[in-house]
Structures are given as C-alpha cells and as structure tokens.
Design a protein around this nucleic acid. Structure first.
Length: 135
DNA sequence: GCCAACGTTGGC
DNA sequence: GCCAACGTTGGC
C-alpha cells in the first residue's frame, strides 16, 4: 500500500463535493512530476486530501479506484488521470502550520515541494496525520 | 496583492 | 546546450 497527497483548491473541488459525488476523475494535472506520481498509484492506495490556497489544511481521505489512464480532457498523450473515491472527511483538519511545526511532518514532500499537486507520503507520516486528525 | 520557487519556452 | 524571459502555483 502506498500513500499520497492530492491538492485541490476548495473553490474548485472541495472534499465536500467528493463526498457528494462519491467518486471523481482526477484530471487536469499538467506537470510531469505530478503525472509520474499519478502513474505510480495503485488501486486501493490512500490519498490525503489537501485544500490549497484557502484552508491550507489536510481535510480528509480518498482512495484510488482506478489506476492511471489517458486524460480525456486533452488530446496530448502525455497526461493521465486516476479515479478517486471518497473515504472520509477528518473529524479534525490538520493545518499546514501544524505540519511545519511537527518534527516528523515538517519533512513531508508537501512542504519540501510546495508547488506539486500530487505528492508521495511516507507511511509514518500518513500514520501521524491520521492520529492528529482523529483526536 | 506580493513574492519565492520552479517549470517552460525560445533565442542564440 | 545555455540562459533569460515569462508563466504558474501557492504561502503569506
């Protein structure tokens, strides 16, 4: 099992919408590194769901339903999408500032590579975020 | 709204 | 292949 973090701007596609929809196609990724991360996702992998810009916090969890396939929103064959399913909205969101202040979580790729929209998460980081989000 | 970080583009 | 110019992302 691998762990990931996906970013979305809440005004564009908040986790509340994913909950309503049940699942969604994760399209629009136009960065090669993020694309490579999408391609490495396996069915069943878990994705922390981060609200960027407004919010700046990890708000919940999604699961990979379908592994990478060509992005139907473009004719360029470089880009792929995955399908994500809703898992949960955390009882307590974990703020970016909290991650930065945490000895373990301050090393997360989210902080090291702040501009990437699809990022790997280490198992121990994932476990710690789950702990913090379920007081 | 500003700016740092970083990716992309195109001239040479 | 180098690098300046420019665009985008996202934190603050």
């Amino acid at each position: 099992m691998n762990y990931w973090l996906v970013k979305s701007e809440p005004h564009k596609y908040p986790i509340q919408r994913l909950m309503e929809d049940g699942n969604t196609i994760w399209d629009g990724v136009r960065n090669y590194q993020a694309r490579n991360n999408l391609q490495a996702m396996k069915e069943g992998d878990l994705c922390l769901y981060y609200h960027s810009n407004e919010g700046r916090e990890i708000v919940g969890l999604a699961r990979v339903l379908k592994e990478a396939y060509p992005d139907p929103t473009t004719t360029e064959d470089a880009w792929v999408v995955v399908d994500l399913g809703f898992e949960e909205i955390f009882p307590r969101a974990v703020a970016l500032g909290e991650l930065k202040a945490h000895p373990l979580l301050s090393k997360m790729e989210l902080i090291r590579q702040s501009r990437l929209s699809v990022l790997p998460v280490r198992p121990e980081e994932f476990d710690q975020v789950i702990l913090l989000s379920h007081p």
